[in-house]
Nucleic acid binder design. Structure first.
Length: 447
RNA sequence: GGCGGCGUGGCCGAGUGGUUCAGGCAAGGGACUGCAAAUCCCUCCACCCCGGUUCGAUCCCGGGCGCCGCCUCCA
């Protein structure tokens, strides 16, 4: 059984499935206001791997991930561009899914949109007001954080210290009673998208949508709630507080993925000039290189992304492809149980992908040296089905190049080395890697 | 300012109180090859600094230095 570090419990703990054999997973999705950056890519890869591995290990997974399509940042972006918020959201969301496809990230089973759930959010908020957990302030409706006894479970430390040490006055919203309170409903300012509510036209605060959508699509007491580590507090804590205040059982477990950093552990930021957009990365590198890079670091730790690390991972992927081509025939074999077991053991231990991957590399060496097809089959299955990293099967090479390869074989047979080498040089110039095998010249595109 | 985390060999990145170890990439040597490529074998390069605990610490404790995160929108 998969064991994960639970942010609330602060320890690694086995999943506590609501129904045996089924994993109901909710992952906080993107706010679609701009082009995705490399950090979004890592985030998406982590949860994609978790989902694939859970399924590989025999669980039926239902994965829901929201799209926040109404938000301050979307509105701000629309203002900058002189367009409307819905347009910004639609365009950004299209970019998001395009990147996900290129990364080989599977679509969630459901991708609810905040704007489609406003009515239900209003219902939830009204209930919270009626129950004394929320109040109407000057510019909106606010949740009274302290009305939930264990508020702060997902916070990085004791709340009084958070407040005491706060560098900046928390909360710019005027109507708040306490810095920890947060907006459930924001009354509209001129020009903003609005929905009607008992408190006047406005729009929902960010923290409410996930509560409503996760409970609607996955039901109470769903198994796991995930997201980026930056969301643990206050976003996820605020979700939890609302559900609790509404008397609804919420997520049984919480997991959070780490961030991406630049070389030297330096934060990625526009001012430092070390950022990369996700489309840029995907244009420049094999998307599988980014997946491998993500797999080679633990999901909760910061991950270094730089041209050097991406290139190294890219070369490793080429090696994987070589294995996939060389042992393509092994795919039909019965996968070796020992390899599968060791893989599962690593993965079950808080998704130890670096350890699991190390084991696969070792098994690959064995499979080649010993010509062990069962091991090869298990390794290929683990890469592809368990981790979502497909290996090459055979290269597609046009007939003209194949003809040259055959001509080279003929030259070699007659020991015409000069001609053989000339043909090889031509093929290399055409962008192929030329390899000799017992079956003759083999070609594959050089990357 | 408060709280938390991290500091491993050329690069990335696991891990552990003691002995053989991660793994990937890179580098060097060798095997194979007509020569290469691919592959295989071997090798080099570690545990930020200073104290302490211990028979023994990279791993435990304290201090220092450096980096990072959260506390405010954020994957």
């Amino acid at each position: 059984m998969l064991r994960l570090y639970d942010t609330a419990l602060r320890r690694v703990e086995a999943l506590d499935l609501r129904r045996p054999g089924e994993l109901a997973l909710y992952v906080c999705g993107p706010t679609v206001y701009a082009e995705p950056h490399v950090g979004h890519g890592r985030f998406a890869l982590v949860w994609d791997v978790l989902r694939r591995y859970a399924r590989w290990s025999g669980l039926a997974v239902r994965h829901v991930s929201n799209v926040t399509d109404v938000d301050d940042k979307i509105i701000a972006r629309a203002d900058e561009e002189g367009g409307d918020a819905a347009g910004v959201a639609a365009r950004s969301e299209a970019e998001w899914w395009q990147c996900m496809d290129r990364l080989g990230v599977e679509r969630p089973d459901e991708t609810p949109h905040a704007t489609a759930y406003v009515e239900r959010m209003v219902e939830l908020i009204a209930g919270l007001v009626a129950g004394g957990h929320a109040y109407v302030g000057g510019d909106g409706v606010y949740f009274a954080a302290t009305s939930v006894p264990d508020y702060g479970l997902l916070a990085p430390g004791p709340l009084d210290q958070l407040q005491a040490g706060a560098r900046v006055q928390v909360g710019e919203e005027a109507g708040k009673r306490s810095p920890l309170d947060f907006a459930l409903w924001k009354l509209a300012k001129p020009g903003e998208p609005t929905w009607s509510s008992p408190w006047g036209p406005g729009r929902p605060g960010w923290h409410t949508e996930c509560v409503v959508m996760s409970l609607d699509l996955l039901g109470e007491g769903f198994d796991l709630h995930g997201g980026g580590i930056d969301l643990a507090f206050p976003h996820h804590e605020n979700e939890r507080a609302q559900a609790e205040a509404a008397g609804r059982a919420f997520a049984r477990r919480w997991a959070h993925s780490g961030h991406v950093v630049a070389e030297g552990g330096e934060k990625m930021s526009k001012s430092l000039g070390n950022t990369m957009s996700l489309p840029q990365l995907l244009d420049a590198y094999d998307p599988r290189a980014y997946r491998l890079l993500a797999l080679q670091s633990h999901y909760r730790r910061p991950m270094t992304v730089s041209p050097a690390t991406l290139e190294a991972a890219g070369r490793a992927v080429e090696g994987l492809d070589g294995f996939g081509r060389e042992l393509a025939a092994a795919r039909g074999a019965e996968p070796d149980a020992g390899v599968r077991e060791r893989f599962a053991e690593r993965m079950d231990d808080d998704l130890d992908t670096p350890g699991a991957v190390a084991g696969l590399f070792e098994a690959m060496k064995h499979a080649r040296v010993a010509g062990d097809e069962a091991v090869a089959a298990a390794v290929i299955d683990a890469w592809e089905k368990g981790l979502g990293l497909p290996l090459a099967r055979e290269a597609q090479v046009p007939a003209a190049a194949l003809a040259k390869a055959e001509a080279r074989d003929a030259s070699r047979a007659s020991k015409d080395w000069a001609r053989a080498d000339a043909l090889r040089a031509e093929l290399v110039a055409e962008g192929y890697v030329v390899e000799d095998t017992p079956l003759g010249t083999r070609l594959r595109p050089a990357r």
